[in-house]
């Protein structure tokens, strides 16, 4: 597992009201959208509302409820996805602490009676925000 690479350094962007950061897969092989079970985005300790989160991958944007059945789009290990949410940040010279939590299902590891292994990974990095 490679959780220290989840957040791409220097990719925090903001429109003022919404913020986004590029994220990397902390796993060695591609996973389909259906295995991307959830994420959290916090900036300077403030969490983006869950319902405002969007996931952009392969040029398409999804809500997490839309990823549940998505077995056509895959997150390749060298690609960045973009996680965004309603979170106001100033695009000034200040450093911001970015936290991302990621929950992934590992579809080939069945741990119990029909239960698929999931992993929860976290990364924290500090960076400036850039105007989107």
């Amino acid at each position: 597992m490679i959780p220290d690479r989840i957040i791409e350094q220097g990719t925090l962007t903001t429109t003022g009201a919404r913020s986004a950061v590029e994220v990397r897969l902390p796993w060695y092989r591609a996973l389909p959208g259906s295995c991307i079970a959830g994420a959290k985005l916090r900036i300077d300790g403030v969490e983006a509302p869950t319902e405002s989160l969007r996931w952009q991958m392969n040029g398409r944007e999804f809500g997490f409820d839309e990823l549940v059945d998505e077995t056509g789009e895959w997150w390749f290990p060298t690609d960045s996805a973009v996680l965004s949410g309603d979170l106001p940040v100033e695009a000034d010279d200040a450093e911001h602490q970015v936290d991302v939590d990621l929950k992934l299902y590992i579809p080939y590891i069945i741990i119990g009676d029909g239960e698929t292994l999931h992993i929860e990974e976290h990364d924290r990095k500090t960076m400036k925000a850039v105007q989107a």
Partner: peptide
């Protein structure tokens, strides 16, 4: 290769 039998969230 991988046998992704858990690829669907709700069933194998």
């Amino acid at each position: 290769v991988n046998a992704d039998i858990g690829i669907h969230r709700d069933r194998l």
